[in-house]
Design a protein around this nucleic acid. Structure first.
Length: 406
DNA sequence: GTTGAGCGTT
């Protein structure tokens, strides 16, 4: 590398064997947007070699990571963090397009790992999904919002001293909420706010929240319960970004007797927000990095069994996707009727559908069947009350399952 | 435990 030109990649050693790339990404997203994480594995035993390369989008962030995350404790070991000296071998870059991720041990990690707490990328195709991070080794457009989570100081620039490795959020610095203009409701206000946020900013916020949750869960809990509007906004953002499947909503039980911490006015508003003139949500979210699909044992990329992750995600995996979206790219999450309002569960049942639609539905998991049934049986009045994005989603589903959009 | 891999060829 040219002299004076620092690397965007840092070398991280002393990583516990059971830490996943996602977890590392969480840790290092503290310094700024992370482009790629590669833990090196021993091909013979599938075990982590205890070191990794973390690539950022720019040198300043890499330096910040070295400064701020030096000796950061992760699962009981203190990370050693340095700028990486050597570039990866000459094989990188030019070659890797022949059916699969070349050589990368994307397998042993990334299925149920990670602080996200939800396995299986909902938006991604069930097979052959892209890796968890941007796999490109070359110049990559950094996320909007630019580098840096904190302390972009260069060495010697008189920056602040490295901060300790615990996320601290000054809860008192946040407003409890601001009064809404008359005639607006919290739901729309949140939607509008989200619509004004760029995908890059959204990703930054998500990364920060994930990081907080994994490093300081108790404070994350306090934050979310004391600012329910934030919790709502984050969840809606996750829907927009395809991080969670809308069917998750149907599995959320309303708390029996709610804690006092609830959204400011009415109880949890339904998603999507009912009519009202709010602008449709931004539809340009790239598919959020889906989890690495585990390679098939015996397949080219397989490097042995994944290291077991402690404690995350022991529940059943969520269903993948919503049944076979026909086209590529982002499609807005189909509106999910919530139990508490609007769709009075007109479960006329499968019988009301044409046989072909019944067959298609039968291949889906139970909860998706129910969701689709509801969507497919919306009345024209109900549909016309939705915004354009949602209508489009419904039309697409109806076209797919009923053969007609009307 | 501490600086990255390896079937192939348009």
């Amino acid at each position: 590398m040219p002299p004076g030109h620092a690397s965007k990649t840092i070398f991280v050693a002393n990583i516990p064997y059971d830490v996943s790339e996602e977890q590392l990404a969480n840790v290092f997203s503290e310094a700024g947007p992370v482009n790629n994480v590669e833990i090196k594995f021993d091909p013979n035993n599938g075990r982590s070699k205890g070191y990794a390369f973390v690539q950022f989008y720019d040198e300043a962030t890499a330096l910040s990571a070295v400064r701020n995350l030096q000796d950061a404790p992760v699962n009981g070991r203190n990370l050693r963090v340095e700028l990486s000296t050597d570039e990866p071998g000459p094989r990188r870059g030019g070659r890797g397009s022949r059916g699969g991720i070349p050589g990368h041990p994307g397998g042993p990690i990334g299925n149920s790992a990670g602080g996200g707490g939800q396995g299986g990328g909902p938006g991604g195709p069930p097979l052959g999904g892209a890796g968890g991070f941007n796999r490109s080794q070359h110049e990559n457009t950094p996320p909007v919002g630019g580098p840096g989570g904190f302390d972009q100081g260069y060495p010697g620039a008189g920056g602040p001293p490295p901060i300790p490795h615990v996320n601290r959020v000054d809860l008192t610095a946040l407003p409890d909420g601001s009064p809404l203009p008359p005639g607006t409701n919290p739901t729309d206000s949140i939607s509008k706010t989200l619509a004004a946020v760029t995908p890059g900013q959204m990703q930054d916020v998500m990364a920060s929240m994930k990081s907080l949750i994994s490093t300081n869960p108790e404070q994350a809990r306090q934050l979310l319960t004391s600012k329910p509007q934030l919790a709502y906004a984050l969840f809606q953002a996750m829907l927009l970004m395809n991080i969670v499947d809308p069917s998750v909503l149907q599995r959320i039980q309303p708390l029996p007797t709610a804690t006092p911490a609830r959204p400011p006015q009415n109880a949890y508003p339904p998603y999507p927000p009912a009519s009202s003139g709010g602008p449709p949500p931004p539809s340009n979210y790239p598919p959020y990095p889906p989890q690495n699909g585990p390679p098939q044992p015996g397949g080219p990329g397989y490097r042995g069994p994944p290291p077991t992750q402690g404690g995350y995600n022991n529940g059943p995996p969520p269903p993948v996707g919503y049944g076979a979206p026909p086209s590529s790219g982002y499609s807005a999450p189909p509106p999910v009727p919530t139990p508490q309002s609007q769709v009075p569960t007109p479960l006329t049942g499968m019988a009301a559908l044409p046989p072909s639609a019944q067959q298609a539905l039968a291949t889906l998991p139970e909860d998706q069947q129910q969701m689709l049934l509801q969507v497919l049986q919306l009345t024209p009045d109900q549909i016309s009350a939705l915004d354009a994005t949602q209508k489009a989603s419904i039309m697409q589903l109806r076209q797919q399952f009923l053969g007609t959009a009307a």
